[in-house]
Amino acid sequence: MSDARTRTEPPATLEAEDKKLVTLARATRARTQAAQGAAVRDSDGRTYAAATVALPSLAVSAIGVCIAMAVASGSGGLEAVVVLGEDDVAETDLAAVAEFAGPGVPVHHGDARGTLDATVLS
């Protein structure tokens, strides 16, 4: 994440719905062995989980796939995002969250085991 957005410690205790996102992101990443796994909750309470797509002809981040699924399902926005993996959250992903859902959406980042290390708002 760049310095343009404030990176903070994740909340000491996550809400149950955000814990569900951590579980979904961790399971998706483990199942696919992808660089990152992500899960989002949309403004209707629906969840979407995805992994990084890294094909020679198509590359999409895990957050990007989640946003695409939400948009394709007719969602009007996001309430929360979790992404797990070694790489930090890309500025392009933060920009996509902000463009789709507006400012103030928490994007939680953590390692492959699901231990969160940072939160940034879109």
Rank of each mutant, 00 (worst) to 15 (best):
T8D: 15
A16L: 10
A25M: 10
L84S: 06
E99L: 08
A35Q: 11
A35K: 14
V40A: 03
R26M: 10
A62L: 07
S75K: 01
D42Y: 00
G64D: 10
V53I: 14
D3L: 15
A62E: 01
V105G: 09
T8R: 11
A27P: 07
P103F: 08
I67M: 10
A98W: 14
A51Y: 06
L78D: 08
L116C: 02
R26W: 05
D18N: 06
A72C: 00
A98P: 08
T52C: 05
R41H: 12
D18P: 00
G110I: 07
D88C: 03
L55H: 13
V60E: 14
A30I: 09
D42P: 01
A51P: 00
V40I: 12
V120W: 02
A101I: 05
D42K: 00
D117Y: 06
P10T: 03
E91L: 09
P103V: 07
R26K: 14
Y48M: 03
G74P: 04
V81F: 07
Q36G: 06
E79S: 13
H108L: 15
R113H: 08
S73Q: 12
A62N: 02
V89F: 00
P10W: 02
G85T: 00
A12R: 04
R26H: 10
G104R: 08
A27G: 11
H109T: 12
A51K: 01
S57N: 15
D88T: 07
Q36M: 12
G74H: 03
A118L: 05
V120Y: 06
L116Y: 02
A16Y: 02
G64R: 08
A39C: 07
A96E: 03
S43K: 02
D117S: 13
T23G: 13
T92Y: 14
V97I: 13
A72G: 10
A101S: 14
R46M: 13
L84V: 13
L21T: 03
R113N: 12
E15S: 12
S75Q: 03
G45E: 07
V89D: 00
V120G: 03
R29C: 09
T13Q: 12
L121G: 04
V53Y: 00
D87A: 14
A80R: 02
A62C: 12
V60D: 06
V105P: 08
L121T: 07
R5N: 00
G77A: 03
A54W: 10
Y48H: 15
A34W: 05
D87F: 09
A34K: 05
L78M: 02
T47Q: 08
D117K: 04
D93V: 00
S75Y: 10
S61L: 14
R7W: 12
D93S: 00
A68N: 11
V60Y: 11
G110D: 09
R29T: 01
G110E: 07
L78N: 04
E17H: 08
Q33T: 13
Q33G: 12
D87L: 13
A98I: 11
